[in-house]
Design a protein around this nucleic acid. Structure first.
Lengths: 242, 242
DNA sequence: AATGATCATGTATATTTTACACAAACTACC
DNA sequence: GGTAGTTTGTGTAAAATATACATGATCATT
């Protein structure tokens, strides 16, 4: 940690504020990926106390002179090497005793990334970094399991309000892959024909003149996202009017 | 403030954590009400520096030994007398210089209340408490205007995913009042017949054998919410399947 | 050449959404 | 007591969307 970076803000009214300024603030990142079949999450193995040896969300304390969003990006980069990912705030967890070293309130951020495009490597207090299938994550440091569950819920909500996939799939993909992604997130099976109808009617996909190769069955057509249209869709969301 | 309540948590690793534990944490409450025509928000006039004399969201620092959600309820009660309201977390704001006294990160909570049922009175560092029409709020202490806008967006989203009204309307109300509430939140007009069809099809309303009295036009039938069904609807949300 | 796997595709039905206009019931005022 | 002014309450047709469902096509493997 770069302790020399820290600058203390001016405290004009020490007498009044003295008893309050003894908290720390952290960020924890929930990074979702998709390997074509399963939804996965990026975890680190902690090399430091507390919870040394435990698997945990990539997270750390932020500096006094650092915005929390910037802090989330920095912490993620320092621990896993991941950069330039779009982080979105999910929820803040502030139970009194959630951290053994003192009062630490944490804000969870989530992101969706393509596993293949994101080489990760352990750094700082991360001893290891690895992708885990969501279904197999059971024991995490701190209250990170609770945080993970909250982010899963958030992801399920998000996927109902805007398209998902550009962030998680390779540049070219089949419709079945996209459907498997939706099924992995929402955790229920969907009808193939209806799924295709729906996703194609959004007009965010471009049909390519390319097909899968080397598969032991009829090869599927490849698609890519129309980046422009996709982004507009994400920004505006589906418009659910009452 | 009850400073004597504060207990410092044990700090096992002072050398390492020392530079970090110098932040404070606050909560700010965005309390929405509805007077039959306009969406309103509860503000306090600050009687203390910083931002003395400014109108602000009811908010304050939380104690070291206090959960943030409990803190939100306490702060709201101490400043405005409001109690037993359902507070929901919205977003955390952590810009470095948002508070002049030092590094203070704040979490916004929102709630919906019936103005008539909630007598409010200024206490603690609140010099005055008052309801303001959303449209007339322009200048607030700290970054509270930004926080308010974020909560407005949240409210708009919420209203699309679950019914609203039980928390904001008197026990008996007309369908036009309910529609005006929706229009105030979503900021666009709706078709009367279609609105009625939709809201009645949810089966959360009970038609009463009572009518408005003393109005200079045909009196409207009164309705109330079916509390059981309403709650189930709120918990489950509308089910938007893909 | 047969097997096994996945891909691609259409239709009929039910449900939901949208757009739209006029008589009824009350008060206030003359 | 009649008229003007205001808001309530109601239905339908057309369009869009959602759902349920089965079969031949194309590749690798043997």
């Amino acid at each position: 940690m770069q302790l020399e970076q820290i600058k203390y803000p001016a405290q004009e009214s020490v007498a009044l504020t003295e008893p309050f300024f003894h908290m720390a603030f952290s960020v924890d990142c929930v990074i979702f990926g998709f390997d074509g079949n399963e939804l996965k999450i990026l975890l680190i193995k902690r090399g430091e106390e507390p919870f040394g040896g435990y698997w945990a969300l990539p997270g750390n304390l932020i500096y006094l002179n650092e915005n929390i969003h910037d802090g989330a990006a920095r912490v993620l980069r320092e621990l896993t090497g991941l950069q330039n990912v779009y982080l979105e705030q999910v929820e803040t967890f502030g139970t009194v005793n959630r951290h053994p070293l003192g009062r630490v309130i944490t804000t969870a951020y989530y992101s969706l990334v393509k596993i293949a495009d994101c080489p990760v490597f352990a750094q700082s207090h991360a001893e290891e970094v690895s992708w885990f299938p969501i279904s197999k994550v059971s024991d995490l440091a701190f209250d990170h399991l609770e945080i993970l569950k909250a982010c899963m819920q958030k992801l399920k909500k998000i996927v109902r309000g805007r398209p998902v996939g550009f962030e998680l799939l390779p540049p070219k993909f089949t419709l079945s892959e996209l459907q498997r992604l939706y099924e992995a997130i929402l955790e229920y099976p969907m009808d193939k024909r209806n799924f295709r109808k729906k996703i194609l009617s959004m007009n965010i996909l471009v049909e390519l003149e390319q097909y899968q190769e080397g598969v032991a069955h009829r090869p599927a057509r490849l698609y890519k996202f129309d980046e422009e249209k996709y982004k507009r869709f994400v920004e505006e969301g589906f418009s659910f009017a009452v």
